[in-house]
Design a protein around this nucleic acid. Structure first.
Ligand code: SF4
Ligand code: SF4
Lengths: 144, 144
DNA sequence: TAATTACAGATAATAAAAGTCTATAATATC
DNA sequence: GATATTATAGACTTTTATTATCTGTAATTA
């Protein structure tokens, strides 16, 4: 059980995008090179993010991607949910009627909520400064 | 991304076992029937739990499984870790040297820790009473 | 029109999980 | 000690989800 690579790519891409000067776009080609992965696969992920309203894309010669206008309000959870879907780690396996208030379910859901709360309360923008010194240059590290 | 069925089976089985009168054993055959799943597959999971010291098994005619002597100290996390392994939801995808203190990693790890903390602080024994009224009968619901 | 870019859909490859089958070892009872 | 009963081990198959590729299409700029 682990996050999909797609989520990983999405997070890194989002962090990268949010460090760009406002309004500045970057092409998928470059984004793929930076992270050393296939453009077409990354494309699918970025399309999801675009449809989810987290980024904006424009085709054409000077096109590319940029973070959406809601850039200051995008949480980690937003990104993860957009890519993974309305994911729930725990699902009841047995189907029975009296499952309201089941302690097993309660515990598992509650724990999961604790994680999500943290993810929902951390915003990409919070990292923007730090990232410029650390991770962003690191993400580019491979290319450099 | 979700918990494996194995974890699900393990949790239900553990909860069932802990509701049994102390020292009482139950065979794999029965456990499998109760949850309506294949005995051989369940066997693998139970063996993991046994090796992990969460349950004790005895072969032979009057054999079967029972919760281990540490029964009062078994947390949800114990069960999950035993089955899923030392699982970490988030793994760095890129390998670079300056990755200490990376904010992305910090956030993801911290969120994960929040979930695990909850799971580590909830013990199976806490459910034992409740379960007798609710879930356990439910688990048996299929067979009844 | 031409070049560049994102988008869509089908398909293939890979990996992980879920499940099966068969044979073996340990225990209790007779 | 023989026999029935139970758990254990390992190889194997099936299924499912993820990851990745390939090809063609649509939108935008110059
Ligand atoms: S978690 Fe509770 S409600 Fe859900 S399947 Fe298990 S026993 Fe039933
Ligand atoms: S999470 Fe941070 S340290 Fe890990 S790969 Fe991404 S940028 Fe590097």
């Amino acid at each position: 059980m682990k996050y999909s690579k797609a989520t990983n790519y999405a997070l890194h891409t989002m962090v990268y995008l949010i460090t760009l000067p406002k309004g500045r776009t970057i092409g998928m080609q470059s984004l793929a090179e930076i992270q050393d992965l296939s453009p077409t696969y990354l494309s699918k992920i970025l399309t999801k993010l675009a449809k989810g309203g987290l980024i904006e894309s424009t085709p054409g010669v000077k096109g590319g991607y940029k973070v959406s206008k809601s850039r200051d309000d995008i949480s980690f959870l937003d990104v993860i949910k957009t890519v993974e879907g309305e994911t729930n780690l725990f699902h009841c396996s047995i189907e029975h009627n009296q499952n309201k208030g089941c302690m097993i379910e309660n515990v598992m859901i509650q724990a999961e909520e604790n994680m999500k709360e943290e993810l929902a309360n951390t915003f990409l923008i919070d990292l923007a400064d730090q990232v410029d010194e650390n991770s962003r240059s690191l993400i580019k590290g491979k290319a450099n």
